Amino acid sequence: MEIIKIPKMEKKEYDSLIEEGYVSRIAFQGEKYPYIAPFLYVFDGKFLYFLSTKYGKKMN
């Protein structure tokens, strides 16, 4: 697996990147491997709002 370094970005650049998307993936520690859970989000220009479900490993 190749390691990719994320380049430095100005606030305008990462705000634009976040505004264009709507799904994020967050990794949690699993028993043997990391557990990656998708989260829907909305960015209003200042805050990120995440939508989660009430089921799945992420609730544990």
Score class of each variant (00 low, 15 high):
K12Y: 09
Y49F: 09
F39V: 13
L17H: 05
G21N: 06
S52W: 09
Y35E: 14
F39R: 09
A37Q: 14
Q29C: 07
Y35H: 13
A37F: 11
L51R: 09
G21D: 07
F43N: 01
K58M: 03
S16V: 01
I6M: 13
F28Q: 05
L17F: 07
G56D: 03
Q29I: 15
Y14K: 08
N60G: 11
N60M: 10
E20Q: 12
E19P: 02
I36T: 10
P34N: 11
A37H: 10
M59W: 00
Y55H: 07
Y49P: 01
R25E: 09
K57H: 05
L48W: 01
V23Y: 14
K12S: 14
P38Y: 11
Y35G: 01
I4K: 07
G56Q: 01
K58L: 04
Y22L: 06
I36L: 06
K58C: 00
I6P: 01
Y49N: 01
A37G: 02
K11S: 11
K57R: 10
E13D: 13
G56E: 01
M9T: 11
K11M: 13
I4L: 09
V42R: 14
P7A: 04
Q29M: 12
G56T: 04
L48F: 07
K8R: 10
E20M: 10
P7Y: 02
E20I: 04
E31P: 05
I4V: 10
M9L: 15
E20G: 08
E13Q: 14
Y55D: 07
P38Q: 12
S52T: 12
I26G: 04
Y41F: 14
V23C: 07
I18N: 01
K11L: 14
F43R: 00
K12M: 07
D44F: 02
L17S: 03
I18Y: 02
E2W: 02
K58E: 05
K57L: 12
K32G: 09
K11H: 07
Y14V: 06
Y55A: 09
L40F: 15
S16G: 04
Y22K: 08
V23G: 00
S52H: 11
S52D: 08
L40S: 15
Q29K: 15
R25F: 15
Y14M: 09
F28A: 08
K12P: 01
K11W: 07
Y14S: 06
G45P: 02
F39G: 07
S52Y: 12
K11I: 15
K54Q: 13
Y22V: 00
F43M: 00
P38W: 12
L51S: 09
K57I: 13
K46N: 03
K54Y: 15
E19H: 00
K5G: 03
Y35N: 08
Y33S: 09
E10R: 12
L51W: 11
N60Y: 13
M9W: 13
M59S: 00
S52N: 06
N60L: 14
S16M: 10
I18K: 00
P38R: 12
Y35R: 12
F50Y: 15
